[in-house]
C-alpha cells in the first residue's frame, strides 16, 4: 500500500509538471532530434540571425505589418549597435525567467502539503529554490552545441552565446557544462517532476521558521523519487544517489549566477532588472 501511495504521488506531480511547464523534456528532445514533423527551429548563430530571430518571433506573435515599426523590436537593425541588441536580448531572457518563476510557483503549489506550510516558509522555499529549478529545466533544452529558447521555436548556438561581450558570454557556459553531464543521467519527465519537488522542499534554506513539516514532505517525495528511478531505470546503478548529488552543483551554479547578475548591475548603465527577479536575488547569497 505504501508503494501505491508513492506511485500516486509520482503520477500527480508528473501531471502538474505537464500542466504548468509548456515545453517538456519529451517535446524538447523531439525538436532537438528533428522528430517532430514540424519545421525545424530557427537557428540563431550570430548578431544578424539574432535580429532575424526576433523578427521571426514578432511576426508570429504580431502578424499585422503596420504595427511593426512602432514596436521597436528589431527592425531597421542597420543603425543598432551590438551592445543594444545584446541588452535587449538580456531583457527578453529576464521576462521569460519571470514567467518561469510563475510556472515554478504554480508547480510548487501543486505539491501535496506545500500550501499548508507557513506562508513565510513558502516564500523562502521559492526564493531559494526557483533558480535551481529553472536551471534544471534548462537542461533538457540543451545539447553540447546549443539550446532551445522561445518555447522550442528557436535554437541558439553555444558558440554564439560564448561570443557575446563580457559578462554576458559567461552566463550560459556553466549551465551548458552542467546540462551536458546532467543529461547523461537520462531522466524522463516523471523523474524530473519528482526531482524538482525534492529541490523545492529543501529544509536547509536560510531563514525557515518551521523546518520539520518541510522535511517530512521532502522525505515522502524522496521515497517516491527513489521508487520511480528503480522502476524506470532498473539497470542504472546508484542513479538515485547520482541525482541527489546534482543538488550540490546546482547551489554553486546559482551562487555564481547571482554574482554575475550583481556584476551586470554595476557595469551596465541601461540594465533594469525585472522586479520579480530583483526580489528573488536580493540578499540571496
Amino acid at each position: 500500500p505504501e508503494s501505491a501511495d508513492l506511485r500516486t504521488l509520482a503520477k500527480h506531480l508528473y501531471e502538474s509538471y505537464v500542466k504548468y511547464f509548456p515545453l517538456t523534456k519529451a517535446k524538447a528532445r523531439a525538436i532537438l532530434s528533428g522528430k517532430t514533423g514540424d519545421s525545424a527551429p530557427f537557428v540563431i548563430h550570430d548578431m544578424k540571425s539574432l535580429t532575424e530571430g526576433e523578427q521571426f518571433i514578432n511576426c508570429k506573435q504580431m502578424p499585422l505589418p503596420d504595427q511593426r515599426p512602432e514596436m521597436g523590436l528589431g527592425f531597421g537593425m542597420g543603425q543598432e549597435s551590438a551592445d543594444e541588441v545584446e541588452l535587449r536580448f538580456f531583457h527578453r531572457c529576464q521576462f521569460r525567467s519571470a514567467e518561469g518563476v510563475r510556472e515554478v510557483t504554480e508547480f510548487a503549489k501543486s505539491i501535496p502539503g506545500f500550501v499548508g506550510l507557513d506562508l513565510n516558509d513558502q516564500v523562502t522555499l521559492l526564493k531559494y529554490g526557483v533558480i535551481e529549478v529553472l536551471i534544471i529545466m534548462m537542461a533538457p533544452l540543451m545539447n553540447k552545441d546549443g539550446t532551445l529558447i522561445s518555447y522550442g521555436q528557436i535554437f541558439m548556438t553555444r558558440e554564439f552565446l560564448k561570443s557575446l561581450r563580457k559578462p554576458f558570454c559567461e552566463m550560459m557556459e556553466p549551465k551548458f557544462e552542467f546540462s551536458v553531464k546532467f543529461n547523461m543521467l537520462e531522466l524522463d519527465d516523471c523523474d524530473m517532476a519528482l526531482f524538482l519537488a525534492v529541490i523545492i522542499l529543501s529544509g536547509d534554506r536560510p531563514g525557515l521558521l518551521n523546518v520539520k513539516p518541510i522535511e517530512d514532505l521532502q522525505e515522502t517525495v524522496l521515497h517516491a523519487l527513489e521508487l520511480q528511478l528503480k522502476m524506470n531505470h532498473p539497470d542504472s546503478l546508484q542513479l538515485f544517489a547520482k541525482v541527489l548529488q546534482k543538488m550540490t552543483d546546482l547551489r554553486q551554479l546559482v551562487t555564481d549566477h547571482v554574482h554575475l547578475i550583481q556584476l551586470l548591475k554595476k557595469t551596465e548603465i541601461d540594465l533594469c532588472l525585472h522586479p520579480l527577479l530583483q526580489e528573488i536575488m536580493k540578499d540571496l547569497y
Partner: peptide, 21 residues
C-alpha cells in the same frame, strides 16, 4: 519576509497571468 517579496507572495496567493508579470 513576505513583505519584502510582494510579487512572490502574490504569486503564491493567486495565480498571475503572464501579462501582469
Amino acid at each position: 519576509l513576505k513583505e519584502k517579496h510582494k510579487i512572490l507572495h502574490r504569486l503564491l496567493q493567486n495565480s498571475t497571468s503572464p501579462v501582469d508579470l
